[in-house]
């Protein structure tokens, strides 16, 4: 799995440390909420809603520079949009790992 990084945020912020911190703060605030919401929807078998949350998380994945993970998550999102429990279980496991990695990274900021 690719490791998260701050390359995009650094490039966007330049010398603007206040803006950089604003972005990080939003990331730290939104990510755990979205992860929690994702698990609630999955536990309720609301796959379409889970896919919508994954769509939001995808942006954060790309902000964290996790290029390979992005495509995997996109595939998982598509499989959930079918609103069926027949989604790819391997993708779910991989996505859960990605979420852990992202959260650990956000916590370290």
């Amino acid at each position: 799995m690719d490791k998260p990084n701050l390359n995009y945020i650094n490039s966007l912020s330049g010398n603007d440390d206040v803006f950089k911190q604003t972005i990080i703060n939003i990331l730290k605030k939104e990510l755990p909420k979205e992860i929690g919401e994702y698990y609630v929807q999955m536990d309720s078998s609301c796959f379409l809603k889970a896919a919508e949350i994954i769509h939001k998380i995808k942006h954060k994945i790309s902000i964290m520079g996790m290029e390979k993970s992005y495509y995997l998550v996109e595939e998982f999102e598509c499989s959930l949009k079918n609103q069926s429990a027949d989604f790819n279980a391997e993708l779910k496991v991989a996505f859960d790992q990605i979420l852990c990695t992202m959260q650990d990274f956000a916590d370290s900021l």
């Binding site: 966007l12 603007d16 803006f19 604003t22 972005i23 939003i26 990331l27 939104e30 939001k56 942006h59 954060k60 902000i63």
Partner: peptide, 13 residues
């Protein structure tokens, strides 16, 4: 945009 992160980035630009 429903994402605060996206709104903040675009607003800055």
């Amino acid at each position: 945009d429903d994402e605060a992160l996206a709104r903040t980035i675009i607003s800055k630009m």
